[in-house]
Design a binder for these strands. Sequence first.
DNA 1: TGCGTTCTTTATCGTTCGATCTAAAATGCG
DNA 2: CGCATTTTAGATCGAACGATAAAGAACGCA
Lengths: 197, 197
Amino acid sequence: MARPREFDEDAALDAAVRCFWANGYEGASVRGLAASMGIAGASLYNAFGDKQALYHRALARYVEQSVQDRIGRFERLPPRQAISDFFEEIIARSLADEQRQGCMLVNSVFECSLHDEAAQIPIIDVVKQIEAFFRRCVEAGQAGRTITSAQTAEDLARLLLATLLGIRTLARLRPERELLEGVVRPVMGLLSAPTRP
Amino acid sequence: MARPREFDEDAALDAAVRCFWANGYEGASVRGLAASMGIAGASLYNAFGDKQALYHRALARYVEQSVQDRIGRFERLPPRQAISDFFEEIIARSLADEQRQGCMLVNSVFECSLHDEAAQIPIIDVVKQIEAFFRRCVEAGQAGRTITSAQTAEDLARLLLATLLGIRTLARLRPERELLEGVVRPVMGLLSAPTRP
DNA sequence: TGCGTTCTTTATCGTTCGATCTAAAATGCG
DNA sequence: CGCATTTTAGATCGAACGATAAAGAACGCA
């Protein structure tokens, strides 16, 4: 019927992820985005709508490839090890992140809330997915007696979630292994604490 | 000698704090800042240099009035209570923050790192002040046997710092009392854990 | 092969940005 | 009372922004 698209939409979206991730929403100009994606500005608008719509699709792609993929990989491990390895990977990624880009999801919490009230909803949803993952780990660990029942699974999952967000914030400023691992050590110690006598 | 300044510099700086806090660095335009401060654009440049210099002074003023003031108020309390009350105040402020402005210091972590490499230094310094406050509390508590010695004071302070940053991030998205207090509960439980047998 | 549709490129729209210039107004000093 | 100095307000600078218009190019289908 009509002329087919010349560029690979997925590849272009991956480039948009990199550009938004590195520069933030405001910092990424439509011109810079289009250049990174290898297309003209008008093609960007034609294919993705506008800058905000492109950002939302880029963020969704990032979440899918980074967050949900990670949850999927650790889901099957023994609970304590899943949590421990999860944080180990976060720390490793933070230390390897030389451009200090941080986590695009966490960045979006601080970028989107101001302009885009409705854009918070998918972000909240992803954060709840992470919380739910932690909670499944804790509940499984409590059932198997490898994680303390001195605190509710609900609260422990909340703590793990806040710890994760705290580490990603801290790593942005001070990407030091000893500091970040020092955060996790007491948390892992808490998980294995015996029920209070 | 010369014409005296017509506006109160401190009052203008307070207005700049409110404007930057509410809109972020990028989001606050020089025109909007000048309007909020009740002065003309040229007066802003004359009195404060440029936008970045004004931001740095505004952030320093915020830190002085919010962060350092808080540390000073809780410093004299019994260690466990200081920590507990500290988080209680953070949660109360987060819940009362209807515009979802969050903490200007935490916001600056995500705003400044990209553009302004040198601006990170004072931010890092303030974060270290907060960490040092937590560490003093933990060490005092350990000396008085009200805080566990199962973990080092260094690591516990790191955990408290990450928890604080995590709560402020989480509150930005989901300002729910039960969620935020649920984060703190296991932390306070950990502090009072007995030394491992 | 021509038609309708969609994509691509280029140029450009109006707005807003941070920053500066100009000139008038307001002071203290001699 | 001028003179020197600084602060005001208002106009304006060039650059960059997001977004669009116009025109030609490339396809499927008749």
